[in-house]
Design a protein around this nucleic acid. Structure first.
Length: 490
RNA sequence: CGGGAUGUAGCGCAGUUGGUAGCGUGCAACGUUCGGGACGUUGAGGUCGCAAGUUCGAAUCUUGUCAUCCCGACCA
């Protein structure tokens, strides 16, 4: 009955939708390409949000909120930006409905046509920089370090639950600086924050680096990214941070007087991560039994399940269980004691496995006789028996261990599936096997595009960490000084 | 927008040569159970995606239409 979800590459829907459904995280909405995030899924997102939000604040940022609607003319101010997003925008053209004369529902009132159409934001650079114009006059007004938690809409032709939905939740940071260096530093700093979050909270190893010109954000001078490998070997872009130069300042005429009393355009960065991270989390750790959550992001870290035949036994077990629960909670661990009489222990075991709860503790009559409890860890499904008195000290250490071991396992998977390739035939073979390929590239967009056409492989990232090495482009044979990472991507 | 497939109970599906709809699971009640999704008995739940046509009669045949999924195109 095992469906081999965790490793099968070819069937996205079974691999992914099934796990999402079983873990009860999200479902398709009635609206095309949108999703309903269910309470348990949202609890995970909230935990991610809180963690990230604190990290932003620790790096000096503040939250703010900007409008959902963007006047059409704003979007077209920056040439590359509009070109990048024009094909996927939802447009508001009217502001009123009216009842049909024959009483059969409503129709759009043609009299209520907007003079200028409004775009539902696909990203907020334009509306924010239009606002920043009014906020910035002097170098004393800088930097502005603002983040927004919001939803955005991108009318993609093809959507995938969590990974590419028409509407998604995200945060977008938009910063304004007096110097180029400062803006670049900011973009790099936030990439580090993302990498920190991915690796230390999501237990998801990432490769930090820079995108090629071809894969760059529309309107950016440089796009930095964290790139991660999913269990089927495909790459997922987990977060991006952009150095925008003065492009948006020029487009929205945002200038300031510097210390030398000279008028200058403002320098910018923007950065964002989205509910796609939920997809990344699922696809990095899940196995055939369902979701596997890293302890630091699990809404429930420990579930305690009593096993009993009658009310008397339950009362005894509850006493022991609640003691353990209190002990763990005192250490900041979220614990659920599930004495729900409506479900059987076996059912609960499966349920918490679907939901990815890192540690499960079972206590039954046999344990009560011996003063013990059974601990099962979700990542390995190993069970062990311990004295009840030890649980309070054992579990915190175990949670740390699970967190680390999930990361180690994912990193090993990536390293095991990363290969250096030096000839084209080999490249085509390896890319089909879902590998990350380290190969030389001649640095041209032309070559990059041709490789993509022939193999569907894209250059995921030019890693910051690399060995300088003379070589020949995998495709054209032209000289190259370093290897870059090719892979198929979601 | 091109290629392919699918729409039948909450979910997953069957339904033969046209004869007025069934299985699994889930749901409700009761009893026995309870250390890995228990079992039995009873019960509730369906405009067969929508529309038109053929026919005495359509889930089934025809046409149209809508929706969803997969593969492309598209995609910080």
């Amino acid at each position: 009955m095992a469906k081999d979800f965790s490793t099968r590459a070819e069937s996205y829907s079974e691999w992914y939708n099934e796990l999402v459904t079983r873990a009860d995280l999200a479902e398709q909405s009635a609206v095309r390409g949108c999703m309903v995030i269910k309470p348990y899924g949202y609890a995970i997102w909230e935990k991610m949000q809180r963690t990230l939000d604190q990290m932003f604040k620790d790096t000096g940022h503040q939250n703010a909120y900007f409008p959902l609607f963007i006047p059409k003319s704003f979007l077209s101010r920056e040439a590359d930006h509009v070109e990048g997003f024009a094909k996927e925008c939802a447009v508001v053209t009217h502001y009123r409905l009216k009842a049909n004369p024959d009483g059969s529902g409503v129709t759009v009132d043609p009299a209520a046509k907007l003079e200028e159409e409004l775009i539902v934001r696909p990203t907020s650079e334009t509306i924010i920089w239009n606002t920043y114009k009014g906020w910035i006059q002097s170098y004393r007004d800088l930097p502005i370090l603002v983040n927004q938690w919001a939803n955005v809409v991108r009318w993609e032709m093809r959507t995938r639950l969590f990974l590419r939905t028409a509407e998604f939740l995200w945060q977008e940071g938009h910063t304004a600086h007096a110097t180029k260096e400062e803006a670049q530093e900011e973009a790099r700093r936030m990439l580090d924050v993302y990498a920190d979050f991915a690796q230390n909270f999501m237990a998801m190893p990432v490769i930090k680096g820079v995108k090629t010109a071809n894969e760059r954000f529309a309107g950016a001078l440089e796009t930095y990214c964290i790139e991660s490998m999913m269990q089927d070997g495909k790459a997922l872009q987990a977060g991006t941070s952009h150095f925008l130069g003065q492009n948006f300042a020029k487009a929205f005429d945002v200038t300031f007087l510097n210390k030398e009393n000279k008028l200058e355009y403002v320098w910018a960065s923007s950065w964002g991560v989205s509910t796609r991270l939920m997809g990344a989390l699922i696809m990095t750790h899940s196995d055939d039994n369902g979701l596997v959550l890293p302890p630091k992001l699990a809404p429930i870290q420990v579930a305690i399940v009593p096993i009993y035949k009658n009310a008397e036994q339950l009362a005894q077990i509850s006493e022991a269980a609640l003691k353990i629960k209190a002990e763990l909670q005192a250490k900041g661990i979220s614990v659920k004691y599930d004495d729900d009489d409506k479900q059987k222990p076996g059912w609960k075991f499966n349920e918490y496995e679907f939901k990815g709860v890192p540690v499960r503790i079972a206590i039954g009559p046999r344990d009560m006789e011996n003063g013990t409890a059974e601990i099962c860890r979700r990542d390995t499904l190993e069970k062990s028996i311990h004295n009840q008195a030890e649980i309070g000290t054992l579990v915190p250490a175990l949670l740390d261990q699970i967190q680390q071991s999930l990361f180690d396992r994912a990193l090993k998977h990536r390293l095991d599936n990363t290969v250096k390739v030096d000839n084209w035939e080999d490249f085509k073979v390896q890319i089909e096997q879902g590998k990350f390929i380290l190969a030389h590239w001649d640095g041209t967009t032309e070559t990059e595009v041709k490789i993509k056409e022939e193999t569907k492989a894209t250059i995921r990232v030019l890693p910051f960490e690399y060995e300088a090495e003379e070589g020949k482009c995998i495709y054209t044979g032209k000289p190259s000084h370093r290897r870059v990472i090719f892979a198929k991507a979601y």
